[in-house]
Design a protein around this nucleic acid. Structure first.
Lengths: 226, 226
DNA sequence: ATCCTAATTTAGTCTAAACTAAATTTTTTA
DNA sequence: TAAAAAATTTAGTTTAGACTAAATTAGGAT
């Protein structure tokens, strides 16, 4: 019987979704412990528990990492939807900047009723993306499709439009914001240095150049215009 | 050292504030258990704990009931401020009706950062009262003063303006709302039956009469215009 | 193939905040 | 003013979710 999941459990599922979405199919105990800020032993406990519920939320075998089941994915998308709606709302309706909203949403997402969720969704006009360009699952938890390439994979000399930027670190967001590197911005990759893969990116609207390292370059995604 | 109080503890303090504000100086174990929906034994435990912190949040002696200390009162007002700001915001900005907001606020109040609190306060223009007419403590936790009389104490034949109505029960609020008995409404007490103290109240704007029992009459307060 | 290291799991503890059942104190009533 | 009833407190459990320390497993380097 699907009772109401605790905020705690919702956080586990959300983090597993995020990890498995980017770095392949499985999340490891240590990865989870790191992003959740708790000990690996605690993760093992919880992961065992969540793989033994009915229905199970996680597929798990000792030493093999975890992935979400269908039920786990649904629960994760539900909380991700709330998170991203809140981020969008705080920016649109309450004058937050995009670097301030992640932490707020991290807490508010667990206090949001279905009613509030749908009123905010409606107030925003049923948006498809949050301020960082992350896709917002719709009321049926369907994610809008986007084809995107990481900045670090873009060929030198090519033009592109920014789709999304990493959303957690306020410092990074302040920097990107100041440069004009936001979703929708048109850019051109000017150069990539051979040894350390540092990139020089031209922002077309301001004609200014920005330097982006490879780690950040992995997390910025682009549309190359089909 | 004042650490961050748990949502739980905040609820205890808030409820003690509410009880002691209306029914005199002390809240009893059983009263608290009833409003919190938990067992009296649990209340005793928590009350003992909160009277032994430094600084203590409660003044408590066995079998004598509890009251808030200065620190407890501050903590209570802080959460009440958030609660009432949220109620006001949901009505003003998100189209909620006044009977829907209490339950939402009960949860959201614990997820509200100081930043969100002040942005909502500003967005509302630093309001003094929430949709039920309850006073909102300002940023320094000072409550606006109002002189008010309970409807059940109003002399028959007298005119008055509604200041506040009870805020928790959606059914009551729907009824009052339909009648037009809202903060700001001008009324006249037409009659009070001797035996059961039932009151007939005339709403001046609509020229309709409403019947109010004595329990509800205790909780509706009025300004008699000095 | 074996050893070393890093990752993971097991086992046992801790805390907050609830519970029930039993004991005690206060209040009310006869 | 004593007995009965109601309120309160004590004592001992339970659950969720964290922790540490110790044991185990997996994978890479020799």
């Amino acid at each position: 019987m699907p009772e109401e999941l605790s905020p705690n459990i919702q956080d586990y599922l959300k983090r597993i979704f995020e990890i498995t979405a980017s770095s392949g199919g499985k999340a490891t105990t240590n990865q989870l412990a790191a992003v959740l800020g708790i000990s690996p032993a605690s993760v093992t406990n919880m992961v065992q528990k969540l793989s033994k519920t009915s229905p199970p939320y996680l597929a798990y075998q000792k030493h093999q990492g975890v992935s979400l089941t269908a039920a786990g994915r649904r629960a994760a998308l539900k909380i991700i939807r709330r998170h991203r709606l809140i981020e969008h709302y705080l920016v649109k309706a309450l004058g937050y900047t995009w670097d301030e909203v992640h932490k707020e949403a991290e807490i508010l997402e667990h206090a949001m009723s279905p009613t509030l969720e749908s009123r905010i969704d409606a107030a925003l006009g049923y948006p498809d993306f949050d301020p960082h360009g992350d896709p917002i699952p719709d009321a049926d938890l369907v994610l809008p499709e986007v084809e995107q390439t990481a900045l670090s994979r873009l060929p030198v000399g090519q033009f592109a439009v920014v789709i999304r930027v990493p959303h957690e670190d306020p410092q990074v967001l302040q920097y990107l914001g100041k440069c004009g590197l936001r979703p929708g911005a048109e850019i051109k990759l000017v150069a990539r240095t051979p040894y350390d893969q540092t990139m020089r990116v031209l922002i077309l609207s301001t004609d200014e150049e920005v330097v982006i390292g490879p780690t950040l370059g992995d997390q910025i995604t682009l549309s190359t215009g089909k």
